[in-house]
Amino acid sequence: TRVETATETAWISLVTALHLVLGLSAVLGLL
């Protein structure tokens, strides 16, 4: 259904953003 697709997209966006933040923090930590 469309609701499931929207929820899945939201989760993917959330996980991606989380990985970006963690990756950025790791890079800044190494610097």
Rank of each mutant, 00 (worst) to 15 (best):
T16R: 11
A6K: 10
A17S: 05
L30I: 10
V27W: 15
A6N: 00
W11A: 03
G23D: 06
L18N: 07
T16D: 01
R2K: 06
L14T: 01
T5Q: 09
A17M: 07
T5N: 03
E8T: 02
L14R: 08
S25W: 14
L31F: 05
L18P: 05
W11Y: 11
L30D: 04
T7N: 00
S25P: 03
S25V: 04
T1F: 14
A26K: 09
L31S: 13
L14G: 07
A17N: 10
L14Y: 03
A10M: 00
L31Y: 12
E4K: 10
R2V: 07
R2S: 12
H19Y: 13
T1Q: 13
G23H: 01
A10P: 07
V15F: 07
V27K: 08
T7L: 10
L14A: 02
A17K: 03
A17C: 10
V15Q: 02
A6L: 01
T16C: 09
E8F: 03
A26F: 04
G29Y: 14
A26S: 04
T9I: 08
L18F: 13
L20S: 08
S13I: 15
T7W: 15
L18C: 15
H19P: 11
H19D: 07
L31R: 13
V21R: 11
L28P: 12
S25K: 14
V21M: 05
L24N: 00
A17Y: 05
V21C: 10
E8P: 05
T1H: 05
T7M: 14
L24W: 01
I12C: 13
V27F: 01
W11H: 07
L18R: 02
L28T: 02
S13Q: 00
L31Q: 04
A26N: 04
L30Q: 02
H19E: 04
L14W: 05
S25L: 12
V21Y: 10
E8H: 00
L22D: 01
G29H: 00
R2P: 07
L22H: 00
R2M: 14
T16K: 02
W11Q: 02
H19G: 15
A10Q: 00
L24M: 13
T5D: 09
T1G: 06
W11L: 12
A6W: 14
V3N: 11
V27I: 01
W11M: 15
V21A: 15
A17R: 07
R2Q: 02
E4F: 07
V3F: 06
T16I: 14
E8A: 04
R2N: 02
G29M: 06
A6V: 01
T16P: 12
I12T: 05
S13G: 09
A17G: 09
